[in-house]
Amino acid sequence: MLIGSLEGIMGNGLSSHNPLVMLLFVVIYAVGVLIIMSAFAYVFGWIERKIIAKIQLRHGPNQVGKYGILQNLADIVKLISKEKAVPSNADRSLFILAPQLMLSLMVFLILLVPIFPSLQVANFGLSMLAIFVLLGFSPLILFVIAFSSGNKFADLSAQRSVLMLMSYEIPMIITVASVFLVSNSYNIQSIVAMQSKTWFAIMLPIGFIVFFIAMLAELERPPFDLMEADSELIAGWLTDVSAPYYAIALFIDYTRMFLGGLLISILFLGGWNGPILPPTVWLIVKAFVIAIFIIIIRASTVRMRIDRVLRLGWVWLIPLALINLVMAYVLFG
């Protein structure tokens, strides 16, 4: 499937019938995309720190590198060089394995989202659906980390994560279904192609809002960061996670936010469609705008309580998502 798609993208000139050469191509290309995406996620972490610092009348990182751009790298290096501490009452193998599993999941997700529209690692019919399957998997890994660490705060956090899952996953899937309904496809390329004239955000405004809120919850961004509520749960599921595992968690945090921005722009904001500038630039600009908006929300709102999140999910988001689905069917179906 992968090789097939690459052949299609690269055209006949580059294609070789030797599967080993093709595999090499795929690997090199995947690594390249991974590095670029990581670089974006990295820049993103820096932007987040800077913007929040500006809002809070601070300077933010400004010592390591120009404008503190290397601060996050220094943090990651520090974390990686630390002792890998595993709590004594943790399930050792699970505790070590789960963050790595999460990282590999993230890699799959990154490879599925086309950062260069014309060059996609894996372009297949159900690519958008595959993304949401993988995305829905990640809270479960978080749950596993929380339970394997054998910490009471992590336990409470895990209980919350299950309740959260109940309240945002359903409306998110329903809204995505409305996009599938309108575009009549599960494929990223054709979803974006459908939006070359009007964005889905304009066609399905309710769906856009519901999806945005559900995405905030999916990304564990404030006001939905109940799982790592620092004032009462120390750091929730991350309480006992330390050193390289924490570095992984940090990396995943930033990557996910960038990914969230990409998904929202692909599904609702016309993806890479845009005048003059090259498509990749458009996509990244849109993703950045979304993510900066998420950052501003983070710096300006208090955290919701779990019962209120449930109420928001079931009283508002799910009915609105259903209304959106019906509207999509009636108007554009």
Binding site: Q56, L57, P222, P223, S231, A299, V302, R303
Partner: peptide, 17 residues
């Protein structure tokens, strides 16, 4: 108050200024 409710440090920094 902002801190205790999970509002990062925004209100805290403003008030402290």
């Amino acid at each position: 108050v902002g801190n205790d409710l999970g509002l990062m440090f925004t209100m805290f920094m403003w008030a402290f200024k």
